[in-house]
């Protein structure tokens, strides 16, 4: 590791570039970026899990829960004002996801490898199955949602999209910066140690299960907030958010980006959404193949993900 930490300055620079640059982007590009940022948050949580040696094929659980939580709360708890707020909804989604992560973590923190992956997948499919059967929540058709305010400030029509864009950019910045700090904290540094040798971590007097549990909750919160953001940007939610292919897509993006840096998942998510959109436009019949070939190429030539390009360059420099 180099002595100077360049990640935080680079992140704040990126924040400024995206905040200002976004203003000049057309609506559809802003919308695409919000989607990429929202999903990037989920993948950021996956990065933390992968660094701990765990692959979750069920982040769709928290992603979907985050999206449904805010809306259901506005229906059931009757906070229509608070729950039509673009800031309050994703944060509430994150809180609900975190609480479920805390509960499920007690069970999942005991499992590793394929057992962890399959259990996490199972839980997300349980949520999917429940939602499909609930006609109150629109079953597979889902329902529409909307936001009118941001942190209590009423948004004029022309500002709605940019406000959400700015919010998602800011949230991604805060999340990446905090996670970067966390990874360099005592607890954060235990993550790769757990992956490498659990026994040694226990001998050093740290609790492996505690590390896994905390990281699992952080990943859940990130997925919940991401789900909330995506739901607002799309304006519609349905149980597909919890389907295993959605979770699989997050793993795809995590592999695409690599775990070298907290910026990698966000960059990979941007690239992924852009490739997907371009593939839809230019290859409407074979867009799935384009995505598949991209992943194959990355795995073959950049096994440590896209971020390894920058790491290699930094080492050579």
């Amino acid at each position: 590791m180099t002595a100077a930490d360049r990640t935080l300055p680079a992140l704040s620079l990126a924040l400024q570039v995206f905040l200002i640059g976004g203003w000049f982007l057309p609506d559809w590009a802003q919308s695409l970026l919000i989607l990429a940022f929202g999903k990037g948050l989920v993948v950021l949580g996956l990065l933390l899990l992968i660094r701990t040696g765990l692959v979750s094929f069920g982040q769709g659980l928290y992603y979907c829960l985050g999206a449904y939580a805010a809306v259901s709360a506005s229906k059931i708890l009757a906070f229509p004002d608070l729950m039509s707020d673009a800031l309050a909804m994703p944060l509430f989604g994150g809180v609900v996801a975190g609480v479920l992560g805390l509960v499920l973590g007690f069970l999942l923190a005991r499992y590793r490898a394929i057992f962890f992956a399959m259990l996490s997948l199972a839980f997300s499919m349980i949520l999917y199955g429940l939602l499909i059967k609930m006609s109150v929540l629109g079953s597979s058709d889902g329902f529409n949602i909307d936001y009118r305010t941001l942190a209590g400030i009423k948004l004029p029509d022309g500002m709605k999209l940019y406000a959400l864009y700015a919010l998602s950019t800011l949230l991604v910045f805060i999340a990446t910066a905090c996670l970067h700090r966390y990874l360099r904290s005592h607890l954060g540094r235990l993550a790769p140690a757990v992956r490498d040798n659990e026994l040694r971590v226990e001998y050093m007097g740290s609790s492996v299960r505690y590390v896994v549990h905390v990281n699992y909750i952080i990943a859940a919160v990130l997925a919940g907030v991401g789900g909330g953001l995506v739901a607002l940007s799309i304006g519609h939610i349905d149980p597909d958010l919890a389907y295993w292919t959605t979770s699989g897509e997050f793993v795809f993006v995590a592999v695409l980006g690599g775990t070298g840096n907290v910026a990698a998942p966000v960059l990979a998510s941007l690239l992924f959404e852009w490739i997907k959109s371009a593939a839809y436009q230019y290859a409407p019949y074979t867009w799935q193949m384009v995505l598949g070939i991209t992943l194959l190429l990355v795995i073959m030539f950049l096994p440590a993900g896209l971020w390894s390009i920058f790491q290699r360059r930094a080492r050579e420099a």
């Binding site: 057309p26 609506d27 559809w28 919308s31 799309i234 519609h236 349905d238 959109s277 436009q281 409407p284």
Partner: peptide, 23 residues
């Protein structure tokens, strides 16, 4: 200009935006 409807609502909303605002 044909677009695939597969990929879920998340994808479709963005693709609709692309059709209208980009294409």
């Amino acid at each position: 200009a044909f677009t695939d409807e597969a990929g879920g609502t998340t994808k479709q909303v963005n693709e609709y935006r692309n059709l209208v605002q980009r294409d």
